[in-house]
Simulated assay, not measured.
Amino acid sequence: MNHRQHALFVLAIYCGIRRGELLGLKWSDIDFDNNRLGIRQILAFKSKIKDGAKTKTSNRSIKMSPFVASELKKHKEQQEEEKMKADEYFDKNLVFCQENGLPVSWGNFHKFWVRILEKTKVRAIRFHDLRHTCASLLLSAEVHPKKVQELLGHASIKVTLDTYSHLIPNMQEEVASKMDSY
């Protein structure tokens, strides 16, 4: 997909980052040398950047894969080009913003998301479902639930397990076979 916010979708699917966290992400939160990004603030209502994430554990550091880091670097280059072409640019250091540098509003983001789904002919899903896709893929690949919890910034592993335990493959078979071994 060739879209100016392509990296937004990559981060949502590969890192399970919430919409408000993505829209509050700043370039200063990204460490390309160590392939890490920090979730330290969110975009709140009325396009205000709010320090801190949803919960205490939502403030977190996420390791980026080389692919994710590469997509962010491309996005940064594209954003630098937009800055040079803009008549007026308000540099808020945001990774994902309007073409003039200002934060995206929640209402405009929703309209943007609906247009993307219609244009790509993808069935109607919530943007948050990309986060669920991330968790589902990781758990199906047998990544330990604790690691998934840390990536998603859930307050406890209970939240992760209550939400996704049905996706952990062969859980019932493993339980049955373990009991037979005694």
Rank of each mutant, 00 (worst) to 15 (best):
W27H: 02
W27K: 01
W27E: 00
W27R: 01
S28W: 00
S28P: 00
S28L: 01
S28A: 08
S28D: 03
S28H: 03
D29R: 03
D29N: 11
I30L: 00
I30M: 00
I30D: 00
I30E: 00
I30T: 01
D31F: 07
D31W: 06
F32H: 01
F32A: 01
F32G: 01
D33W: 00
D33S: 08
N34D: 08
N34K: 11
N34Q: 11
N35E: 02
N35G: 01
L37F: 02
G38W: 09
G38D: 09
G38H: 09
I39P: 02
I39E: 00
I39H: 03
R40V: 01
R40S: 08
R40K: 13
R40D: 02
Q41E: 05
Q41F: 05
Q41L: 06
Q41S: 07
I42A: 05
I42E: 05
I42T: 15
I42S: 07
I42H: 04
L43Q: 07
L43Y: 03
A44F: 11
A44T: 07
A44E: 08
A44D: 14
A44H: 11
A44G: 15
A44Q: 10
F45N: 15
F45R: 12
F45Q: 14
F45L: 12
K46W: 06
S47T: 12
S47A: 15
S47C: 11
K48T: 14
K48D: 11
I49L: 15
I49E: 10
I49F: 08
I49N: 13
K50A: 09
K50R: 10
K50C: 12
K50F: 06
K50H: 14
D51A: 15
G52Q: 08
G52Y: 07
G52V: 10
G52S: 09
G52D: 10
A53K: 10
A53L: 11
K54T: 10
K54G: 05
T55H: 07
T55Y: 12
T55S: 14
T55Q: 06
K56F: 13
K56T: 14
K56C: 05
K56A: 15
T57G: 02
T57Y: 14
T57Q: 13
T57N: 15
T57K: 13
S58V: 14
S58T: 12
S58H: 13
N59F: 11
N59K: 12
N59S: 10
R60T: 07
S61T: 12
S61K: 08
I62A: 04
I62Q: 04
K63H: 02
K63D: 04
K63L: 03
